[in-house]
Design a protein around this nucleic acid. Structure first.
Lengths: 182, 182
DNA sequence: GTTACTGTACCGGCTGGACGGTATGGTGAA
DNA sequence: TTCACCATACCGTCCAGCCGGTACAGTAAC
């Protein structure tokens, strides 16, 4: 793994374990096993480091979604269903609040959220492209954001079983019933 | 209004307008029209100030929910419906990202989130108390968290009309149909 | 009513440390 | 010897928290 990736991993770990406030160039360097100069060689500034973290998160999420999309059967709400599945992937970046990258971005410099906004717009388009009821799909998608939010905030509402139920319920709402009511 | 409240208002305004990173004791003092010494007289430390902000937010949310609960017709999912209505209140703390208090808390010191966790548990109990399908109610509630998340992150997925649709759809899912499928 | 004392509310300067960023030195591979 | 890669040393700034004051009530004894 490249040094850049090692540094990003270190920064992610700090945010996850100690909070955004503890993310400093010194700390990231120490955890990554390099010097601060090393960090600043790969990232011109702290903003740049956070930019890297956000990009990493986006890439991971996007890759995860593409993988799940392949496995998801065709039909209406395919993208929305994909989003639900990916959100409950135990190894995905949604779990294990690696998403602290977002917290770092929005607190240090809101401009760093631009790539995230772009990605959200992209996902919105994807969902809209194959959802018979965009509002329904949007609601479920927003619920997935809620899960993300709860994980970021350290809120634990139910056990794994409750999470499983939630996922099934969400997928159920994204299944078009034959002859059912609108 | 007491000086303490004025200071909290000032801190909230700073977080909302300039971001969490700009929240310093000096800045809060300046906006509140007192000196830093004055701030530290009312709040023993910066953590203590953020504690006050979080508590204010919790109180506001709780009050809003109680108000809406009174107005909400009786029946199943009453608490869940209340939560949806309150979430779309244009004057409520959910809109207009005053909730930056949460960002301040989780970034500066995750321990400060403890009161929030407690409140979430309380709401969970309320919802569970009158929801025929707790998973359904939990999903909608999580979607409301998602809205909150999107607002915090500056993500704007649809216009006001889309928001209106989302609310109606959520309420619709919390309406027990006569003779409908389970 | 005046003096002495006490507590509340607030001011403003100071400092020690942390942190972002720079400048420069070193080192191994090509 | 050149260049990518990283280390070390250092600087300027910012900020939390501390502390010595001030103003202004009460209040109580004389």
């Amino acid at each position: 793994m490249s040094t850049s990736d090692t540094i990003i991993d270190a920064a992610m770990a700090i945010v996850r374990d100690q909070g955004v406030g503890k993310l400093t160039l010194d700390a990231a360097a120490k955890v990554a096993g390099v010097s601060k100069g090393g960090v600043l060689y790969h990232f011109k500034s702290k903003d740049d480091l956070i930019r890297g973290m956000v990009q990493r998160l986006i890439d991971q999420c996007d890759q995860l979604n593409r993988d799940y999309y392949q496995r998801e059967p065709e039909g209406p709400y395919r993208w929305a269903r994909t989003l639900v599945r990916a959100c409950f992937d135990p190894t995905g970046p949604a779990n294990d609040p690696v998403g602290g990258a977002l917290l770092a971005a929005i607190t240090v410099n809101p401009d760093l959220m631009a790539p995230v906004h772009a990605m959200y717009a992209l996902w919105q388009d994807r969902i809209a492209s194959d959802s018979p009821d965009v509002t329904r799909a949007g609601l479920i998608r927003t619920a997935m954001d809620g899960l993300y939010f709860q994980r970021l905030m350290g809120i634990r509402l139910g056990d794994d079983k409750a999470g499983e139920c939630l996922m099934r319920h969400a997928l159920d709402l994204l299944t078009v019933k034959e002859g059912g009511p609108s």
